[in-house]
Design a protein around this nucleic acid. Structure first.
Length: 304
DNA sequence: CGCCTTTGACCGGCGC
DNA sequence: GCGCCGGTCAAAGGCG
């Protein structure tokens, strides 16, 4: 059942205090370094709703580096909040699939959706005043990306709606919202206090629409449209994929990572990322070795 | 003109 | 109750 663990959802619910777990996971730096050697990372798009790029485009799937300006170092590490581990509302964080992602969102989130919609409506009309219920949060996940730019392209369009200084960090946190109507996905972007070269991105919610800038049939067109250079698509993906393909293909149809799909229904997405987690104690874990080994040649791990 | 960012204000949750 | 802090709003301005 390794596949299940692979898709464990990073489900942040409630208030997430980034610096804590981020910093605690900072020992990841070493891993970043090793990742850099590879010069590419997988999983970014998948995390962001690449459900639309179902397995059949696997061969063409741009490496996440396409998501970022050339100057950036596309190293993506998903991090897991200790809160997620303690989150009682997370039914079974260790066995996730598209089904579980949905389960995750089933009641609480759907309810929250309606509720939030309601709230937002009233808010617009006149500064609302809460519902009595504690505001529910969408499942969240975060990952760290080594990049020179804060706002990484991920195929969706975002509107910045706020920026706040973060306590204990010289870097501000930016808040973005998906521009698609009725899509309540949000993301927060901030730089790691410990390593300014690392951008921490937190996504909240599910996209309920395909990526607007990357229509399935034409990656190239979408790429230019979204600012991706054609050259990024020329990345030697084939070689890399041939490696991953065999190992990952079995996952391809089995889940929608993090619920980032069309509500996790039809589309299969896939997750093949380098994932490192922090346990509640704050120490860094290579939590699912299975996954890592799926992605990273075992000898690389041994070299660690 | 539409879309986006910026930025100060506001609000709610939480700890003391 | 108070203050801190994270998150959001919304007006203003910039840009293509």
């Amino acid at each position: 059942m390794e596949g299940k663990e692979v898709v464990k959802i990073e489900n942040f619910v409630g208030s997430t205090t980034f610096p804590d777990h981020i910093q605690s996971s900072y020992p990841l730096q070493g891993l970043f370094d090793f990742c850099e050697g590879d010069r590419s990372s997988l999983g970014f798009m998948e995390l962001l709703g690449m459900q639309d790029y179902s397995p059949f485009v696997f061969d063409m799937l741009p490496v996440p580096s396409m998501l970022q300006p050339a100057a950036s170092k596309p190293v993506v590490t998903k991090i897991e909040s200790p809160e997620a581990l303690n989150q009682p509302a997370t039914p079974n964080s260790s066995s996730i699939s598209s089904a579980s992602s949905e389960a995750l969102n089933d009641e609480p989130v759907m309810a929250a959706d309606n509720e939030e919609e309601e709230q937002q409506k009233t808010k617009k009309e006149l500064k609302p005043k809460k519902t009595n219920q504690k505001r529910q949060r969408e499942p969240r996940f975060a990952f760290m990306t080594k990049s020179d730019v804060d706002h990484l392209e991920d195929g969706y369009r975002w509107r910045k709606y706020g920026q706040k200084a973060v306590k204990n960090s010289p870097f501000p946190r930016s808040y973005y919202r998906c521009t698609s109507a009725s899509c309540n996905v949000k993301k927060r972007v901030e730089r790691s206090f410990s390593d300014p070269s690392i951008v921490v991105t937190t996504y909240e919610g599910q996209h309920i629409h395909p990526s607007p800038v990357m229509p399935r049939p034409s990656f190239a067109g979408a790429a230019s449209e979204s600012g991706f250079s054609a050259t990024t698509f020329a990345m030697p993906m084939q070689r890399r994929l041939s490696l991953y393909q065999q190992q990952q293909q079995h996952l391809v149809n089995s889940f929608s990572p993090l619920g980032f799909g069309y509500n996790g229904t039809t589309n299969a997405s896939f997750l093949h990322e380098r994932r490192f987690c922090t346990n509640p104690a704050g120490s860094t874990l290579l939590e699912d070795h299975g996954l890592l080994e799926d992605i990273v040649p075992s000898h690389m791990l041994n070299e660690e």
